[in-house]
């Protein structure tokens, strides 16, 4: 069984198709999806969205690239180690509540303030967004990490 698997794989490798159409479209769609994911993420505190959806959409945008090209190209486009992103995400998620603990408020007390920015008007700054960044990074990195791992198996 293993043998045949390997065999089909090499055959597939030789017949690596260059689907120009898919690759072109995916590039365009990638930017749309990733922008949408950022939008969802940052708007999440006031309108539907947030770290989970944002992270998942970001991951699926990258998965699209992964399907259109291959892992090597993806890594050239985005030279990031997903394990690192995962770690940073977890650090954010655990660190932000701890920071509020260290500064004298109970664990997980978020702080917020409003500042006046010339063009955009009043903007809310919220430490919950920082926590959400942790969620975003963890979710995005893990989903992508899983698919890349499974995809590259036995190669």
């Amino acid at each position: 069984m293993k043998h045949t698997l390997k065999k089909t794989e090499t055959e597939k490798g030789q017949k690596q198709m260059n689907d120009v159409f898919l690759q072109f479209v995916s590039k365009v769609v990638f930017f749309i999806v990733i922008m949408f994911s950022f939008n969802l993420f940052f708007a999440g505190h006031y309108t539907p969205g947030g770290g989970f959806v944002g992270g998942l959409l970001a991951a699926s945008a990258l998965i699209l690239l992964l399907i259109a090209y291959d892992k090597k190209t993806l890594q050239k486009m985005l030279p990031i180690d997903f394990r690192m992103v995962l770690t940073v995400g977890l650090l954010f998620a655990a660190g932000i509540p701890t920071l509020s603990f260290l500064f004298g408020t109970p664990f997980f007390t978020h702080q917020h303030t409003y500042i006046e920015v010339p063009v955009f008007g009043e903007i809310a700054l919220h430490s919950a967004v920082l926590f959400d960044i942790g969620v975003f990074l963890t979710v995005a990195a893990t989903s992508l990490f899983i698919i890349v791992l499974v995809g590259e198996a036995e190669n």
Partner: peptide, 24 residues
């Protein structure tokens, strides 16, 4: 539910890979 959906995904992914690995 939002939390649960994401956890369910993690669970599915993990069991899938477990199945894959044990099959191999």
């Amino acid at each position: 539910i939002l939390t649960a959906i994401v956890i369910a995904f993690a669970l599915t992914a993990y069991t899938l890979v477990l199945a894959l690995r044990s099959y191999r």
